[in-house]
Amino acid sequence: MVRRIPRRYLVHEITVEPYRGESSTGPLYGQAVTVRCFLDEQTRAVRSPGGEQVTSTSTAYADLATEAPALSRVTLPGGRTTTVIQAKRRDGRQLGTPNHLEIQLE
């Protein structure tokens, strides 16, 4: 049985604009999507996809189906806009763990 984070724990909403690449005028983003999540606003050191150590100010835990690639633009509940450092799939398959996407934010 594939398990998800129970909906009752997804008490926050963030807006994610998925990163689509670069253009001559700057970054391109997809359509903004409201995502239910659990938001942990805690500062910690994390590794970027390139291996550099960077500071994450928040982590959002959302359904695995959420699209939030690195460099996506995210608006937090308080209105602050930030960027995805990386999104990690936490998929335990049949282990009974709550499967989710861990979105590390600048």
Score class of each variant (00 low, 15 high):
Thr97Val: 15
Glu106Thr: 15
Arg7Ile: 15
Arg73Phe: 09
Thr81Leu: 12
Ala65His: 15
Tyr19Pro: 08
Gly92Pro: 00
Asn99Pro: 00
Leu76Glu: 12
Leu39Pro: 07
Leu105Ile: 06
Ile14His: 07
Glu41Cys: 10
Ser56Lys: 03
Asp40His: 08
Ala70Ile: 04
Pro49Ala: 05
Ser23Arg: 06
Arg44Val: 04
Ser56Ala: 03
Ser48Arg: 10
Ile5Lys: 06
Leu64Arg: 06
Arg4Pro: 02
Val2Tyr: 12
Thr83Phe: 11
Ile103Ala: 01
Gln104Met: 04
Leu76Trp: 09
Glu106His: 09
Tyr9Trp: 13
Arg93Ala: 07
Glu102Arg: 01
Thr66Leu: 02
Glu67Asn: 11
Ala68Lys: 08
Gly96Glu: 00
Leu71Trp: 08
Thr25Lys: 11
Tyr29Trp: 10
Leu101Ile: 02
His100Thr: 03
Val35Thr: 02
Gln94Pro: 00
Leu71Tyr: 12
Glu13Asn: 02
Leu39Lys: 06
Gly92Ala: 01
Ala87Gly: 13
Tyr29Cys: 11
Arg7Lys: 09
Glu41Leu: 12
Glu13Thr: 14
Thr82Phe: 12
Val84Gly: 07
Arg80Thr: 05
Arg20His: 12
Val11Cys: 07
Thr75His: 10
Leu76His: 15
Glu17Asn: 14
Ile14Asp: 05
Ala68Cys: 14
Glu41Asn: 09
Cys37Val: 14
Leu64Tyr: 04
Ser23Cys: 14
Met1Thr: 15
Leu105Lys: 03
Thr83Gln: 15
Glu52Met: 12
Glu67Val: 13
Ile5Phe: 01
Leu101Glu: 03
Val74Asn: 06
Ser58Gln: 12
Thr81Asp: 12
Glu13Asp: 06
Arg47Cys: 13
Thr66Tyr: 04
Leu95Cys: 15
Arg7Leu: 08
Thr82His: 11
Leu76Pro: 10
Pro6Asn: 10
Pro6Arg: 05
Gly50Ile: 12
Tyr19Trp: 07
Thr57Asp: 05
Ala45Gln: 15
Ala65Glu: 11
Arg90Met: 02
Ala45Leu: 14
Ala68Gln: 07
